Simulated scan of single mutants.
Amino acid sequence: MTTLALTGSPLWYAGRAGGTLSLILLTATVVLGIASAGRAAPRRIGRFEIALMHRNLSLLTLVFLVVHVVTVVLDPFVHLSWAASVVPFGASYRPLWLGLGTAAFDLLLAVLVTSALRLRLGVRRWKAVHWLAYAAWPLALFHGAGSGTDTRLPLQLWIYAACLVSVPAAVWWRLAKAGPGRVAGRLVGAVAAAAVPVALTVFLAGGPLQSGWAQRAATTAIQLGGGG
């Protein structure tokens, strides 16, 4: 696994760099969206500036995500088709973990398309779809950890750790600033924010950080489907 990370093609490096940068930017976008919503919005910065920054981060995330997808498809090692880049779990290489990334990509594309049609859809429908961006974040995390051949590298682990700390911290900060009311919703948010770091930590310890993970990851979807 480490040897591949050190001797990969330029497309491999571009793909991994694009994926890592898009994960960092997605995390920043989610953190900004959570921390600036509702009554938790900062008072010293205008909502227009916050919305502009949020939009620019979202677009930059999609730019690097497209770079990631294109370079991975063009990389001859993975043998990923263009169809598999938009249809989840259709790849032959690490199908489950690549499928999670494809699902995250599709969710973000849905957010992009509905944002362009926001005036026609209405605010309520647009917000309902916009929540998909939050679902894309854990999918992207597990995709990167499960499919990345450099997951065991210290720098990559530090990046995952920073992402895992940032989003739950933003959730808990917003819940603390939200004031009374909606106890059930706040409890669900707090539990969900704590569950993702715990789940990914357990997954890393029992999966990608163990020897032989590359072989197990390649057949995970087949085992789950009951095939041979």
Rank of each mutant, 00 (worst) to 15 (best):
residue 154 P to Q: 09
residue 94 R to E: 15
residue 71 T to H: 07
residue 206 G to M: 02
residue 74 L to R: 05
residue 128 A to D: 08
residue 101 G to W: 03
residue 116 A to F: 10
residue 162 A to G: 10
residue 90 G to H: 12
residue 4 L to C: 07
residue 150 D to C: 08
residue 102 T to P: 02
residue 54 H to L: 02
residue 161 A to K: 08
residue 153 L to Q: 15
residue 139 L to H: 03
residue 91 A to G: 05
residue 105 F to A: 07
residue 10 P to N: 09
residue 21 L to G: 14
residue 146 G to T: 03
residue 128 A to S: 10
residue 8 G to S: 11
residue 174 R to G: 00
residue 90 G to W: 08
residue 145 A to T: 06
residue 164 L to I: 06
residue 16 R to P: 01
residue 87 V to I: 13
residue 212 G to V: 04
residue 70 V to W: 10
residue 165 V to C: 06
residue 198 V to G: 13
residue 102 T to M: 01
residue 5 A to T: 13
residue 83 A to G: 09
residue 146 G to M: 03
residue 179 G to K: 10
residue 37 A to S: 12
residue 174 R to E: 00
residue 35 A to W: 00
residue 1 M to P: 15
residue 188 V to H: 13
residue 69 V to H: 04
residue 153 L to R: 10
residue 215 Q to P: 08
residue 177 K to E: 00
residue 113 V to P: 12
residue 194 A to D: 10
residue 106 D to W: 00
residue 122 G to N: 10
residue 49 E to W: 05
residue 24 I to R: 02
residue 62 L to D: 00
residue 43 R to A: 15
residue 77 F to A: 09
residue 171 V to D: 01
residue 87 V to D: 09
residue 183 V to G: 13
residue 85 S to L: 04
residue 212 G to M: 04
residue 74 L to V: 05
residue 74 L to D: 06
residue 216 R to I: 08
residue 136 A to S: 11
residue 78 V to L: 07
residue 57 L to A: 02
residue 112 L to A: 15
residue 160 Y to F: 15
residue 52 L to E: 13
residue 102 T to S: 08
residue 33 G to W: 01
residue 13 Y to D: 14
residue 129 V to C: 08
residue 107 L to S: 03
